[in-house]
Computed example of a mutant assay.
Amino acid sequence: MMNWTRRHSLIAGVGLILITNVVVLLGVAYNKSGTPESVLKLSQRELQVPYGGREGADNSGMSLRLIARSTGPFSMGASGEEDSDGWFGKEKLAELGFDVSAPADTEQGRAYYQKQHSRQVFIVLEFNGRAYQHAVEVARKMEAAELNKKQPTTLAREQTMSSRLFIVDAGVSREALRAKYPDTTQYSIVRGQVRAMVYTHNNQAMLIGYVNQRGAENINVPFTFRSVFEPMQRTVQENGYSASNSGSPSFEAAIAFGKRLEPWMVAATAK
């Protein structure tokens, strides 16, 4: 029997690393092969440099954070008006496989839903569509109310700074979701996790779902396009996170989603 030595351990460790890297590279190649599943043309409003940029970090890489908003009770405005476009309720939770039989307005029901595990699903991202237009209309109403307070900023912020990318649906069938949202320049499908919870508003308990983990949260920037984003990165480092979507500097980036629903950047230009 061969004696296991430190040298053997080193060789085994190196071999495992090589195998892992090969598997990762093959997965990346497969994801990018063929025609992309979808391509979204986003801007600095949807793609943000993380706070602090690369300061004090490894300068070999750069990534942008994908900002996707939600509709429903969690997107109520300052006026207290609940978003009527909310879609993630009891019926959707049941469709995703959650047991929704317990009453939501009891302590036992709250505890029951709190103990339910997250579920892996497919999530639909909508760019510059109905959900965003609804957000603009809500902001318009809020600004009308804020004029009396001399704070007419809500609508301008929504129209020039806020992300236009929204989570609008979820399902267990990727094919069914794509059939429902066929426009691959406006809708992308990614993997994610969802949970159920009891939400109380105006003393009324309701069962809702929310996305607690989403794929495609970060987009790596290829070296070829890095010069497009470095001015924005310097702005963030100098002025803080809020400057990253202030409109200056600005850009447009084409983000493709592949066979594994993983994103990569295929084009980027400064504007």
Rank of each mutant, 00 (worst) to 15 (best):
W4T: 08
T5C: 06
R7K: 09
L10G: 08
I11L: 10
A12D: 12
L16F: 12
L18T: 07
I19G: 09
N21W: 15
N21I: 14
V22Y: 14
V22F: 14
V22Q: 15
V24L: 15
L26C: 15
A29I: 14
Y30E: 14
Y30C: 07
K32S: 09
S33G: 12
T35F: 10
T35M: 06
L42E: 01
R45F: 05
V49W: 01
G52Y: 10
G52T: 09
G53E: 06
R54D: 07
G56E: 08
G56H: 06
A57M: 10
N59H: 08
M62K: 01
M62H: 02
M62V: 05
S63F: 11
L64R: 00
R65M: 09
R65V: 10
L66W: 01
I67R: 08
R69T: 05
T71I: 15
F74G: 14
S75E: 04
M76N: 11
G77I: 05
D85T: 12
G86C: 02
K90T: 14
E95M: 04
G97I: 02
G97V: 05
F98W: 03
D99E: 12
V100Q: 03
S101I: 04
E107I: 10
Q108S: 12
G109E: 00
R110S: 02
Q114K: 13
Q116D: 11
H117Y: 12
S118L: 08
V121F: 00
F122S: 02
V124M: 06
V124N: 03
E126N: 06
E126R: 09
F127T: 01
N128Y: 10
R130A: 12
R130K: 15
A131L: 07
H134P: 06
V136Y: 04
V136S: 07
E137M: 10
V138R: 13
V138N: 09
A139R: 04
A139V: 07
R140G: 10
R140Y: 02
M142R: 14
E143G: 03
E146H: 10
L147P: 00
L147F: 05
N148F: 14
N148R: 15
Q151M: 12
Q151C: 04
P152Y: 06
P152A: 10
L155T: 01
A156M: 03
S163N: 00
S163L: 01
R164K: 11
F166W: 11
D183P: 06
I189S: 01
V190C: 08
R191T: 13
Q193V: 06
Q193K: 13
V194M: 04
V194C: 08
A196H: 00
Y199C: 03
Y199I: 11
Y199V: 11
Q204W: 02
M206R: 15
L207M: 00
L207G: 02
I208K: 03
G209V: 04
Y210V: 01
Q213L: 05
R214K: 10
R214E: 13
G215M: 05
N220S: 14
P222G: 03
P222M: 02
S227P: 01
S227H: 13
F229P: 00
E230V: 14
P231F: 04
M232I: 12
M232F: 08
V236R: 03
Q237G: 04
E238H: 07
Y241I: 06
A243E: 06
E252H: 13
E252K: 08
A254G: 05
A254F: 03
I255V: 14
R260S: 10
E262Y: 05
E262K: 11
P263M: 03
M265C: 07
M265Q: 02
A267V: 04
A267R: 07
K271L: 09
